[in-house]
Simulated scan of single mutants.
Amino acid sequence: MIDLPRDSQRVLVVDDDERIRQMVSRYLEEAGYQVSVAPDGEGLREELRLRPVDLILLDLVLPGDDDGLTLAREIRRTSDVPIIMLSGRDEVVDRVVGLEVGADDYISKPFHLREVLARVRTVLRRHHHSGSQAREENDRTIRFSGWLLDPQRRLLSSPRGEEVDLTTGEFELLLALARHPGRVFSRDALMTATRGRHHEAFDRSIDTQIARLRKKLDFEAADAHALIKSVRGIGYVFTGHVAAAR
């Protein structure tokens, strides 16, 4: 398989050991990557504010209040950038937890620099491939119960071919639900999927948008509540029959 062009790929190395930062960054730079370094969580956040990165090598044990697992969770709330965890503790529980919070791979210390380079190349290649597939999937028009939902043109067409006027929030909400039929979404998950932020205890805007969306679907559907069902104590689920139109 052909390697991806590396001139625009930047790796961020986060480790409190200066020797490791220098050693890894020098090796990756010689392999053709751009490299940034940070000693802790604050340094990581600052680097991410300054420039985008394509992959993060993140040490599990860091000084201060933020360890690698905490930082990985924080990153995953807003980004799918690949993360490879580094750890001097070769324990199964650390490896499992690291992968569960969103890390793409895990390397135990001490490591060989050739292994680090191989893992970086593999994870970047895999991320590029899956990202291309996801973009293609996300661009597909969705058909459900006679309706057409077009993500590229951001249009909803009724079974009679009429365009339905939706607000940006209503469109994003319907799209998130229709892309995952049968999946029960909490209000928090819908808020994050459509607005990129967490649901607040007294924020009922999701319920309001669901009500408006049902009303707009109701003039064609026998029962719009049958397409978007409430799940008591949890949230909502889309139950329409969904198929990709193209």
Results as ranks from 00 to 15, higher is better:
residue 169 G to T: 11
residue 1 M to E: 04
residue 69 L to H: 05
residue 44 L to K: 03
residue 64 G to F: 12
residue 88 G to C: 02
residue 61 V to S: 01
residue 193 A to I: 02
residue 143 R to C: 07
residue 218 D to I: 03
residue 173 L to S: 00
residue 55 L to Q: 13
residue 200 E to A: 13
residue 210 I to A: 00
residue 242 V to N: 01
residue 83 I to L: 13
residue 235 G to N: 09
residue 57 L to G: 07
residue 66 D to A: 13
residue 147 W to P: 05
residue 108 S to A: 15
residue 236 Y to T: 02
residue 206 I to V: 14
residue 113 L to Y: 01
residue 91 E to C: 00
residue 27 Y to I: 00
residue 176 A to V: 07
residue 187 R to W: 02
residue 137 E to T: 05
residue 203 D to I: 14
residue 204 R to F: 12
residue 22 Q to N: 07
residue 117 L to P: 01
residue 184 V to Y: 15
residue 66 D to V: 09
residue 192 T to H: 13
residue 63 P to L: 09
residue 199 H to D: 10
residue 227 L to K: 00
residue 130 S to H: 07
residue 13 V to L: 12
residue 106 Y to M: 12
residue 135 R to S: 14
residue 15 D to G: 03
residue 70 T to N: 08
residue 137 E to D: 10
residue 81 V to N: 01
residue 2 I to Y: 04
residue 140 R to C: 09
residue 31 A to F: 04
residue 79 S to V: 12
residue 64 G to H: 06
residue 4 L to F: 03
residue 171 F to C: 03
residue 176 A to S: 12
residue 83 I to N: 01
residue 135 R to H: 12
residue 232 R to S: 15
residue 84 I to C: 05
residue 23 M to D: 04
residue 145 S to G: 01
residue 52 P to G: 12
residue 185 F to K: 04
residue 216 K to I: 11
residue 14 V to P: 11
residue 243 A to M: 10
residue 159 P to H: 13
residue 38 A to W: 02
residue 42 E to Q: 12
residue 78 T to C: 09
residue 217 L to H: 03
residue 65 D to L: 15
residue 157 S to P: 02
residue 70 T to P: 00
residue 37 V to M: 13
residue 200 E to M: 10
residue 221 A to T: 05
residue 176 A to C: 10
residue 147 W to H: 08
residue 33 Y to S: 00
residue 230 S to L: 06
residue 119 R to I: 04
residue 184 V to W: 15
residue 79 S to W: 06
residue 226 A to C: 06
residue 89 R to M: 06
residue 208 T to Q: 14
residue 63 P to I: 13
residue 72 A to T: 01
residue 232 R to Y: 15
residue 102 G to D: 03
residue 173 L to M: 02
residue 16 D to Q: 10
residue 50 L to F: 13
residue 163 E to N: 13
residue 85 M to I: 10
residue 155 L to T: 15
residue 72 A to M: 05
residue 232 R to F: 14
residue 149 L to F: 09
residue 204 R to W: 10
residue 239 T to N: 11
residue 201 A to K: 15
residue 216 K to E: 06
residue 55 L to P: 10
residue 171 F to P: 01
residue 208 T to E: 14
residue 101 V to Q: 01
residue 191 M to V: 01
residue 180 H to G: 06
residue 92 V to Q: 13
residue 59 D to H: 03
residue 95 R to L: 03
residue 44 L to M: 14
residue 63 P to F: 04
residue 31 A to Q: 09
residue 233 G to T: 09
residue 168 T to N: 13
residue 82 P to N: 10
residue 36 S to T: 07
residue 170 E to A: 09
residue 164 V to W: 00
residue 57 L to S: 07
residue 129 H to A: 15
residue 38 A to C: 09
residue 167 T to L: 12
residue 103 A to K: 05
residue 76 R to E: 09
residue 1 M to H: 12
residue 113 L to P: 06
